[in-house]
Design a protein around this nucleic acid. Sequence first.
DNA 1: ATGAAAGCGCTAACAG
DNA 2: CTGTTAGCGCTTTCAT
Lengths: 354, 354
Amino acid sequence: MVERHPPVTRDDVARVARVSAATVSYVVNNGPRPVAPETRKRVLQAIERLGYKPNAIARNLRLRRSATIGLIVPDTHNPYFAEVARGVEQMASENDLTVILCHSDYKLERELHYVDVLRTERAAGVIWFPATNSPEPGVQLDSYGMPLVVLDRTASEVQAPAVIADNFLGGYLATKHLIDLGHRVFSCITRPEALHHSSERIRGFRAALTEHNIDFDESLITRGGFHLEDGRAAAEQIMRHSSRPTAIFAYNDIMAIGALRAAYEMGFKVPEDLSVVGFDDIPQAAFTCPALTTVSQPKIEMGRQGVALMVDILHGKNIDRGAAPPLPVKLIVRESTGAYMYPPMPAQRRSHDK
Amino acid sequence: MVERHPPVTRDDVARVARVSAATVSYVVNNGPRPVAPETRKRVLQAIERLGYKPNAIARNLRLRRSATIGLIVPDTHNPYFAEVARGVEQMASENDLTVILCHSDYKLERELHYVDVLRTERAAGVIWFPATNSPEPGVQLDSYGMPLVVLDRTASEVQAPAVIADNFLGGYLATKHLIDLGHRVFSCITRPEALHHSSERIRGFRAALTEHNIDFDESLITRGGFHLEDGRAAAEQIMRHSSRPTAIFAYNDIMAIGALRAAYEMGFKVPEDLSVVGFDDIPQAAFTCPALTTVSQPKIEMGRQGVALMVDILHGKNIDRGAAPPLPVKLIVRESTGAYMYPPMPAQRRSHDK
DNA sequence: ATGAAAGCGCTAACAG
DNA sequence: CTGTTAGCGCTTTCAT
């Protein structure tokens, strides 16, 4: 039978150990005052016997701070944010910080809601992966004096360090890879708005082309959404262009897959007629799509570095309020094993006809 | 310029509104005592003017409870857990609960660590997705009297309700689907241990076969790991069997993809020679592998229902300490558009030869 | 080396 | 309808 522990307070321990409450604290916290070995032993025994656990709530109230940080991300359902969250929790745990998970669901309104919640909870700080272009959540956090670290975006309106992947390098490496494969006519599929990271990726793309003296037909740049269907639609148009490209640099893997799909459907051979590279926003997508080459972003590392910055801030270190140096990016060329590269499936189709 | 808010307490509000501290509380909490409209207005104005936010820490200390629940999952890097986490946070938010994210990293030791942390934080309850076969974390939580809801597993040693997907139904539906496609010789690839959900899936598999009077050669059941390579290895063996199956029921999508891969590599035509169905443990995998048929598990719903149970417990409702009724399972037959179904890629291969 | 005591900000019982 | 007050469990200064 399992023994049940009723709530045990520090005073209970003090009573049992026949010392003052203060002494118990000194033992539990290993300071700030020394405790005689003999006394310490008595206290530890009492703690053990009673199954005492310090109450973090009372502790936080007294210290007027907490060891909890808030993590505001759009949606961990998206593997990209899930990996970031993983990194955040990992590093937080290594620094004895606890993480409150907040999903903004890509809505400013939810971000602001959580800013409120985290303020009420007196979170020690907030790691924020902005979901919209509004700096408002950051501005508010700032005005409340809550330490903040921004992920993946710069927000010039906000006084906070940011952790940013090296999108320029990624765009450059991806394009360089395509050039090395022998491609000379390029297209680029990107998302509609000119956000910092999307424009950086394209800047890298252009830099690689320029470096190799390759002309780029500006009419071969397409802005769409950032979903699979957007990539497909964009490629359909592009592949009909008079100067048809042999290579596409896509904003992300999902659009890249859409582009491959379109090319295939139009009767092109892949990759003989078309090579595509995209950033791995949805890493698992590339996992099962061997034809796709991806630029692997250091997502877990982003999360970890975000918390590292936060820890520095909490320890009062002098932090550069600007962005942290961009993180390196890996270019992954996935080997195709030809696993599921077979013609469409009549059998499965059939099941729908019933 | 953004106005900075220094820490404001309830007493500050009381002073400015020229009422007692208690009255401020009554306004903030809408009770438990009525407040005259005139007074309430003065208080609200003061709150607004000072930018006051109640301090949840002090509140929790006084009430001896918190509105925070712990979520212990193996790893949100795995999309399966990420979706569950999403559901948990969603429902928690709807019930004004805050979620502390804890990654056990598939380790019992980490689970126990977080049990400690959550006890120290005086979490109102814990949602636990067990990472190992050890009931110990649940047993401890139990002994501390902390409300607990277990996800996806039953733990008979633990006094706690569990939310379980209907694995039997999933196994049944998947197999029924294959039978309807005309298959009569089956194989089954599963994971090594006979965990509750894996054996349930196989029980459903067998039930469907029995119902249709289909013989099953027990030597065609294979236990491997639960990764892609395990599925591949298993299928390689199976497809050499004297009574070669035309259909495989795989434990999950990853093993299913491995199986498809093996079949393809052995020169079989897919799906003419082999159909495979697996549970969608890694949903994004199926997303880009159209040949794969998956049993879609209600992951977000699992998370939501887990929190719903927790809320009932916290409100003192009479909860059946056994498992909640299994959640329904959807069988998704993905349409193949033939997107990336082309031969292996010489161009990309080449880049590795350099 | 240790004890006593003053709060941290809040809720709610008690007293008008 | 409102004010006063006793803690919630803890840290730390002030005494000893």
